[in-house]
Simulated assay, not measured.
Amino acid sequence: MSAAHAFVDESIRNGYLLSAAVIPTDDLSIARGKLLELCKPGQRCLHMRDENDSRRREILSILTGLGIQVYLHRASVAGRPIRDGRDQCPRALVPQLLVLGVTRLVIESCNQDRRDQQIVQPISNRLAVPGRFVFLHSVPSAEPMLWAADAVAWAYGRGGDWRRRVEGLLGSVTELS
């Protein structure tokens, strides 16, 4: 893959699931436009938990044509704090993204942005070519590509036919112990 951007969202279902939607930089503006077209009047962003099944199918169908590959990392949280699983996933994900040629990582902003910084920055400092990798946080209403990460995490986590609908988008699924 040439230079790419990655957009990360999380889900907690059968463990902690981190979803990274990776797209070549050259395809980014078209993909954003297609996702924005899916918003209904007055809707600021897409979130699968807020959509009905018909809209979910439509969203997943559009995603399959955008050149996105999604990399999932799941950590068990049984018998341990969710924070442990949340820390474990980016530690495995970021090196993988660097190998894939990701130059920009956007993580959905939440109340744990500072902790994300503490995890990602040392990995970036150690493994990334200086000046060739940046990461930041963004809210979903400001970055439509976060919606892709959310949609695939939701569908994969739901299983069954929903998971089948995103199989073609999956670059890999990594189970962390």
Rank of each mutant, 00 (worst) to 15 (best):
Q121W: 09
E108R: 05
K34N: 12
R91G: 13
D87N: 14
C89Y: 03
G101C: 12
N14P: 00
S141V: 09
T25S: 12
Q69E: 13
A128T: 05
S19R: 07
L136F: 05
R132K: 07
R163V: 02
P41L: 12
M145L: 15
A78Q: 08
I123H: 13
E58W: 00
G168Q: 05
P24D: 14
L169K: 05
L98Q: 11
R49P: 00
Q118T: 09
R126W: 12
G157W: 02
S109W: 06
G85N: 06
R32F: 07
R55K: 06
A153K: 01
L17F: 03
G131Y: 05
L176H: 09
R91D: 13
R104S: 04
I12Y: 01
T64Q: 10
T25G: 04
K40M: 03
C39R: 15
D50E: 12
V70Q: 03
S54A: 05
D50S: 04
A3T: 13
L93N: 13
V106N: 12
L169C: 06
N111E: 07
Q69Y: 03
E58K: 03
V106P: 08
T103M: 08
Q117I: 06
R115Q: 15
V139L: 14
V139I: 15
I119Y: 07
R57E: 04
F133D: 13
V134H: 11
A149P: 04
A155F: 00
L63I: 01
R80D: 02
G131F: 05
V8K: 09
R83I: 10
V106A: 09
P24Q: 15
A142V: 07
C89M: 01
L93G: 01
L46G: 02
A31T: 13
D50L: 10
P24E: 15
D84F: 00
H73T: 15
V152F: 00
C45N: 11
D116C: 14
F7W: 15
G171T: 11
A3V: 06
H47S: 01
V70R: 02
D84K: 02
E167P: 00
Q96M: 14
A20G: 04
F135E: 10
R74V: 04
V8M: 15
L17H: 00
R56D: 03
G160I: 03
R132Y: 07
P81F: 06
L35G: 05
V102S: 15
S177A: 11
